[in-house]
Every structure is written in structure tokens, then in C-alpha cells.
Amino acid sequence: MLRYALTRLLSLSLSLIAASVAIFAAIEVIPGDPAAYMLGLNAAPETVAVLRDELGLSGSVWARYLDWISGLATGDFGISYTYRVPVAELVAQRLAVSLPLAAYALALSTAIALPVGLWAAARRGRGADLGIMAATQLGIAVPNFWFAMLLVLVFAVKLRWVSAGGFPGWEAGLGPGLKALTLPAVALALPQAAILARVMRSALIETLGQDYIRSARAKGLSRAQALRRHAFRNALIPVLTILGLQFSFLLAGAIIIENVFFLPGLGRLIFQAITQRDLIVVESVVMLLVFAVILVTFLVDLAYAAVDPRLKRR
């Protein structure tokens, strides 16, 4: 197991280095000079050059790459061109919203999807199963921003249970914070739950055809017991794969939902940074997201091995 973890960790570090080179190179070739953009069309070339120096945009490519990487390693992400504050500070503020939102949505979608998948698999082909399959189809088809607006109309405008948007900040306390994140989390979670429930169901149904389920039944387990005790864990591998992908998506892919609910999250930060040529923010946030994705992949790999002992040997 330790060996398995170490080899995964090594491949994780190599992926990170490769990603940092790719991101840096991509930003290098993107047209548009941030200094010229910030100073406007009529700026004198000398002024632009001064600003370029100030922003650390002059110098050789290698020197700038090493500068950036060593900064990242020590937590110094540089200064945002537009906001004029350290990028680290900016990202930390936004992460305080995005990370809990992603975790909240993921917890919700898992809590909904696994029981629903189990329930549908146990009733395969019957009315309940067909109903659930139709509902999940709908859940995948409906765009989440439309669903988000529907939630706002019902729970904020009609019932007035929650506010329609905005985030009070964690200083206001855990309760108000979570309350503000609930509607966005639901809007994000339901489509994900629909996908996850379908994956769970089909993985379970495939597992139920296996010989060891028959063995379990011969031991005296009921259909439901065989499903819970033997099929469930064997069906988790594809579910974990999807779960890992969904978390990565939720972390940065919530731009539209963040806009609908006026949440100061990471998605909106990167969107604004791109339109304002705030390349240092773009670079750092993208790198951070890559790191998060790779980390999640690593955790999913470890979870595979925890679920399936056959993988520990590899």
C-alpha cells in the first residue's frame, strides 16, 4: 500500500511540473500586453516599458518562469495587475467561498445519488426504477442556471426562506454562511446527483450479475443484503471516478451559478481576470486548479486501493 501511494505521489509531482510549464507557455503566447492594456491606447511606449518592469514582465522567459515557480512554492503568487493586492490574498478570499460550496454540493449530490442508485438497482425494471431513470434524465438535461433561477423564484421570492443571492462572509457566522450557500449548492448538486445515481445504478446492476452475488444468496443473504454487503463496494470504483471528476468541475465550473447568486467565488475571479488581462491572477488560479485536480485524482487513486485490495499490488 505504501509503495502504491509513493508511486502515485511521484506521478502527481511530475504532472504538476508538466502543467506549470504548459500554463506558463500558454500565457506567454497569448496576445495582448497587460501593461499596454492597463495604461490605455494613448500611453507613451516609455511609460509602458516602466510598467512592464514594475510588473516583472521584462527579462528572459526562463528567469520569469523560475521566478514564478519559486514564488508559488513559497506562497508568493505575485501582485494582481488590476486589484493591486497580493494574488494569494485574493485567491484565499475566493476559496473561502468556492471550496465550501464545492464540498457542500458534492456532499449533497453523494447523499442523494448513492441511496437513489441503490434503490433503483434493487427495483430494476419496475415502476420505481423507471421513474427514477426518467427523473435523472431530466436532471441531466435541465441546465443548472435555469434550475437555479427556479430555486430563487420559489425559495427566495415566493417563500422568502433565504435571500436571493450574495454572501455575508464567514464573519457573520457558520449558520448564515451555510444558508447563503444552500440554494447554489442544491442547484449545483442536483445535475451531478442525476449523473452519479445513474452510474451507481448501472454499476450495481452489473455487479448483481456476478457469481459471488449468487454465492452470497446461497449463504442465506436476502436480495437486499447481498446488494448492500457485496454489490455496493464492488460497484464503487466507477462511482469514485465520477466523483473525482465532479469535484474538480465544481471547484471552478461554478461560474454561472456564482453569477446567478452573486457569490464572490473563484469562477468569477478567473472570469474577470481574463477579461481584464490580469494574467498573473489567471496563471496562479489555473495552476491552483490544476493542483486541486491532481490532488483529487491522487485521493481517488488511494480510495480505489482502499475499496479494491487487488489494486494495492500494482
Binding site: Q210, D211, Y212, A216, R217, A218, K219, H230, N234, R310
Partner: peptide, 21 residues
């Protein structure tokens, strides 16, 4: 009754056991 009074073993031992238990 199954498992207590009646026991059964099958042809394919390679797949008759739960691989993760």
C-alpha cells in the same frame, strides 16, 4: 433455510468469491 440447512458450491471458484472481502 439457505446456508443453514442447504449449502451450495458452484463451478467457477475464480469468480464465486467477493473480490473485495
Amino acid at each position: 433455510v439457505r446456508g443453514r440447512d442447504l449449502g451450495m458450491i458452484f463451478q467457477e471458484p475464480m469468480t464465486a468469491l467477493n473480490p473485495v472481502q
